[in-house]
């Protein structure tokens, strides 16, 4: 694990923007110039499409730069003392209108494909509810006894010495989710807007008071591990201090964790969400 992370870091340095090979990078690393490693098929698609876009865009920038360099060399006052008087060239003008249109179509087709792939989960096997608060996240597991818990930032002094780099990413209670499972995520908030984002999952969704948003993830078992993210919508003073941490574990480990979590959380915490405000809540709520 560690070894391969070094390899991937070296690769990032060597190939710059284009790499996405190597092993899991679950959190950002120093001098990173690229996406965090994909953990879901959706994020893989995003990275693939982005690289495709980048090739086209870099080509456009290089074309403009090359034309400008040519102009600087050929058409400076010394090299070309008598300016031409050309002000029109209809075929040229048609070309630089039509070619960009074609390029846009070439971009739009995979873009639409990506967009529609990312849409709602087809047959979710379980649901996780995510609730934004100033300034922590609450989670609910409606399909597993509807227990709920809060996740608060871990202070720097509480992190072990070799984990200080996780400051502003680490929280006290990780979300735990099973691998190889199609999971529906439901989002809402209790106070202001927040945004729940995990780069590796390709998920970034506003949590809006009075509304329920939906997204989905499915992490294959080869990508089991811990993933970090941060609140991505300005939500007040401590906006930078409400990170997100998710453990993706095997189905068996998840089942074991659920049993433990029911013990630990269910009776202790009141439901984190005001039922009337958030609406749809399974009948099993509150015991």
């Amino acid at each position: 694990m560690k070894m391969s992370r070094w390899i991937s870091m070296a690769a990032v340095f060597a190939v710059g923007l284009f790499t996405s090979a190597g092993a899991m990078a679950q959190q950002p690393h120093p001098w990173q110039m690229n996406f965090q490693k994909a953990a879901t098929p959706v994020m893989e698609e995003i990275i693939w499409f982005h690289n495709w876009l980048l090739v086209i865009e870099v080509a456009i920038v290089i074309l403009v730069l090359a034309l400008m360099l040519y102009i600087v060399i050929k058409f400076n006052a010394k090299a070309n003392p008598v300016p031409s008087k050309t002000t029109h060239n209809a075929p040229l003008e048609v070309i630089w209108t039509v070619v960009p249109i074609i390029i846009l179509v070439v971009i739009a087709v995979p873009s639409m494909k990506l967009l529609f792939t990312m849409d709602k989960a087809q047959n979710p096997e379980m649901t996780l509810k995510i609730i934004g608060n100033q300034w922590f996240w609450s989670y609910e597991y409606p399909d597993h006894g509807n227990f709920t818990f809060d996740a608060n930032l871990t202070q720097k002094e509480d992190l072990p010495d070799d984990k200080k780099s996780l400051y502003l990413l680490e929280v006290d209670n990780h979300v735990v989710l099973p691998a190889d499972t199609s999971i529906r995520l439901l989002f809402t908030a209790n106070d202001v807007l927040h945004n729940w984002a995990i780069p590796s999952f390709g998920v970034k969704m506003d949590t809006v008071p009075g509304r329920i948003n939906e997204a989905w993830i499915e992490v294959p078992s080869e990508h089991m591990g811990t993933y970090y993210g941060q609140c991505s919508e300005l939500c007040g003073v401590n906006h930078g201090y409400m990170p997100i941490a998710v453990d993706i574990v095997s189905k068996a480990d998840f089942a074991a964790w659920v049993e433990k979590a029911k013990e630990e959380f269910a009776r202790v915490d009141e439901p984190a969400v005001d039922v009337a405000r958030v609406g749809a809540r399974p009948a099993t709520a509150g015991r």
Binding site: P28, H29, M33, F35, S165, Y167, P199, Q230, H239, G240
Partner: peptide, 15 residues
């Protein structure tokens, strides 16, 4: 691209 959110006064060491 590495994921750093905007409008934050402090950030993880990696950034």
């Amino acid at each position: 691209m590495a994921g750093m959110p905007r409008r934050i006064p402090d950030y993880p060491e990696a950034y």
